[in-house]
Write a protein that binds this DNA or RNA. Structure first.
Length: 744
DNA sequence: CTAGGGTTAG
């Protein structure tokens, strides 16, 4: 045996093996996870994970399966055997299929080629590839249908390299691929974005005269559109001998996937003119397009159409409707749809409702729906946990986060990429780097997303050195960084004044990792230079960008001008930003306050007037107050809070009292954030906050004694409901106070 | 008779 113990064979290795006229694939009898050997060399590795849906088979056994299932073997007939196996394949009932397999062996139908193929298909579709391969090897002879089942099984289980290997097998044995085989392989190419291989298959299809087969044509169409070649897909579509509803759906979905929603909807109309009726697939795509376009009217129209056709309660269409309404903030309609779906609702439908609340920053409502979902015994999946953890981060609530974490552990989702990284993110946002660290180290295998989350956690919680060290470790571990990785390390450098490191990283991004910088990276570099006071360098950087600078690229430089008192440059930058985004309230606030501090009161007032005339100050979640020619802006994640007159009065009172006490509320900071956590207001922006940074105070946050007493003072004047937690950590720490940035 | 093509969400 070779030493390839834990890695799947690559198609390259396998292809060369198959080139040498392979005879037979074999399977290990001792290790159920090994799929097989060719001429004594292992070619693949399967994980036997087909048991995940077994909980469903008990129900299905008692309700939906033909009676013969329970009858003695002698009562089985060939027809129903095949029917039941097809049923198991479609529903993913592995356990039921296994039991049925036993009956089949007893009855003697096991030797039947068609029954054998159905069995292979059942195991493959249920995810038990080990058994599928074992059966293939025991079949008296292989035919194209059984091979297709095997290849299709690989493809459905994400084993694309293995699918290719088995496809190559056709060259070595007497049977050849047929049109079924090509459709399967085209789907594999689509998933791998393997356009070259796809084109080769296209050529073979033409040569073999399968091109007139509708399914093959549709598979080609999908392959091209998945690979991003929409022009080829469209011309292929136009040239199709026969366009059925699947062809139309495929091309419409292609344009939807590439975010050309208008074109997608235009084609939807053309389709009806062509006399083809849209079905549930087409409607799902159309509704999802409306959701992405944020077009409530057209979406409602589609909703009406599916209602009329009686398709509105199906899992996919129904869920898309929930998603459509909740994504547009129409939570009422979303909830109504979910309720109407009743038992037809799947976990996806619930997830869509939760996601809508999370995206619209209504974390509490999201958690309520989650509680409802649990109460309804709906199984939570990776999406549910990932979404609900995002809700925890925006609250932010450590307690809720811990509760969800325990559910995640119980449901065995910690190792899932999305759930794991959301967990790290959530602990990060709740201020507990220690917990984030624990999740990260306990994950059996870390994926790049989790590495990114952990680096970001260090970076955002005042551990820039740790962030960079972890980045180094990641590179040494051979993990390819992504653009988010660089965002995290660049911001770590920027917040800790490591200008040179930051610049080096930015350069290596393109040079060593071939990652094209985006707007956010440029913005980070501008921030890096600006914070360090290198205003001219930052300006040069922007001027020399290969693309036209956008408002988000200019903004950090304006903030830097404010910090470093460069009014002249601030005026120039302000002009640039307003040209790109005339409604940016920050610009007026910043300029006005800078003029006030420079004693240019007329100029200051001019800015405030402009701001009022343009009515730009009314950002959601933000209110502002003018005291002594200065503007203070208050942010709160709770819209109703920042917009309520009572709160407005309260805030005004606070600022006045603060000023009366001789404090200058944020000499360099015009934004004051008001956060709530678990019904407590936990923080205020304070003196000398770096621009753009809003403070959050959590129980484990490191606050220096000065700020602590200031925060305590604030808490006494704000409101009775607003109480600060008294368990800050008070010891010497190496990184700065999260409030004022001072070192203690 | 057995195998194939199009749908939801981080």
């Amino acid at each position: 045996m070779t030493s390839m113990a834990n890695e799947p064979a690559t198609s390259k290795v396998v292809c060369t093996l198959f080139d040498k006229n392979p005879r037979r694939i074999g399977v290990s009898t001792t290790d159920p996870n090994f799929i097989g050997y060719v001429n004594g060399v292992k070619i693949g590795y399967f994980t036997n994970n087909g048991t995940s849906r077994d909980d469903r088979s008990d129900n299905l056994c008692t309700h939906n399966v033909p009676v013969t299932c329970y009858s003695s073997a002698s009562l089985l007939d060939r027809r129903s055997v095949i029917d039941v196996l097809r049923f198991c394949s479609n529903e993913g009932c592995l356990e039921l299929g296994r039991r049925y397999h036993g009956l089949i062996i007893k009855s003697g139908f096991g030797v039947d080629q068609f029954v054998g193929t159905s069995l292979v298909d059942m195991y493959a579709k249920c995810g038990d590839m080990g058994s599928a391969v074992m059966l293939i090897n025991r079949m008296p002879y292989l035919d194209v249908a059984s091979c297709n089942c095997l290849i299709s099984g690989c493809a459905k289980n994400g084993l694309f390299d293995e699918a290719f290997s088995f496809f190559m097998m056709f060259d070595g044995i007497d049977i050849g691929p047929n049109h079924y085989t090509y459709t399967i392989m085209l789907a594999v190419c689509g998933s791998l974005l393997a356009i070259e291989e796809g084109k080769q298959l296209h050529a073979q299809i033409v040569k073999m005269q399968y091109i007139s087969d509708t399914a093959a044509g549709n598979a080609l169409l999908t392959m091209y559109s998945k690979c991003g070649m929409m022009q080829d897909a469209e011309s292929l579509f136009k040239g199709l001998v026969q366009r059925n509803v699947v062809s139309w759906t495929a091309i419409i979905n292609g344009f939807k996937q590439h975010r050309d929603f208008e074109k997608a909807l235009r084609l939807f109309c053309l389709m009806s003119e062509d006399g083809i009726d849209p079905n549930e697939y087409t409607f799902s795509i159309a509704l999802a397009s409306c959701a992405s376009m944020k077009n409530l009217d057209i979406g409602r129209m589609f909703h009406a159409q599916v209602l009329k056709k009686g398709l509105a309660l199906g899992d996919y269409v129904g869920t898309t409707i929930v998603d459509f309404y909740s994504g547009l903030g129409e939570a009422g309609d979303a909830g109504k749809q979910l309720k109407e779906m009743g038992k037809f609702a799947s976990s996806a439908s619930w997830n869509a409702h939760i996601a809508g609340f999370v995206h619209n920053e209504k974390a509490e409502e999201a958690i309520e729906v989650f509680a409802d979902m649990v109460k309804n015994d709906e199984a939570c999946d990776e999406f549910t946990y990932s979404m609900i953890l995002k809700a925890c981060s925006s609250l932010p609530s450590l307690v809720t986060c811990e509760q969800i974490h325990s559910r995640v552990i119980k449901a065995k989702f910690v190792s899932n990429m999305h759930v794991g990284s959301s967990l790290i993110d959530a602990y990060n946002k709740c201020g507990s780097v220690e917990d984030a660290e624990r999740v990260f180290t306990q994950k059996s295998s870390a994926d790049v997303v989790s590495w990114n989350s952990m680096i970001k956690a260090y970076s955002q919680n005042g551990h820039p050195t740790k962030a960079l060290a972890l980045f180094q470790k990641m590179i040494e571990g051979g993990i390819m960084p992504t653009n988010s990785t660089f965002l995290a390390v660049l911001s770590a450098c920027s917040h800790s004044g490591m200008v040179q490191e930051g610049q080096k990283l930015f350069e290596s991004m393109v040079r060593d990792y071939n990652i094209l910088p985006e707007e956010t990276h440029y913005s980070c570099v501008v921030d890096l230079l600006g914070r360090a006071g290198q205003l001219e360098n930052a300006l040069d950087f922007i001027k020399n960008l290969p693309v036209k600078p956008t408002a988000p690229v200019w903004r950090p430089l304006l903030a830097a001008c404010r910090c470093h008192n460069n009014l002249q440059m601030a005026e120039f930058i302000a002009k640039q930003i307003l040209e790109l985004d005339p409604n940016d309230a920050t610009v007026y606030v910043t300029l006005s306050n800078m003029y006030t501090e420079a004693g240019q009161y007329t100029d200051a007032e001019k800015q405030r007037k402009l701001m009022t005339v343009k009515d730009v100050a009314k950002e959601p979640g933000c209110s502002w107050i003018e005291i002594n020619n200065r503007i203070y802006r208050f942010f709160s994640h709770d819209k109703s809070c920042s917009e309520s007159p009572r709160v407005y009065q309260k805030l005004k009172q606070i600022v006045q009292q603060i000023e009366k006490r001789g404090y200058t509320l944020s000499a360099k900071e015009d934004n004051v954030a008001l956060y709530h956590s678990e019904k407590l207001a936990v923080g205020f922006g304070l003196i000398n906050l770096p621009a753009g940074k809003r403070i959050r105070v959590f129980k484990n946050l490191r606050v220096c004694p000065d700020c602590h007493s200031f925060l305590k003072y604030l808490s006494t004047i704000v409101d009775k409901e607003i109480v600060l937690r008294d368990n800050y950590r008070f010891h010497h720490f190496k990184q700065g106070c999260c409030s004022c940035g001072d070192f203690w």
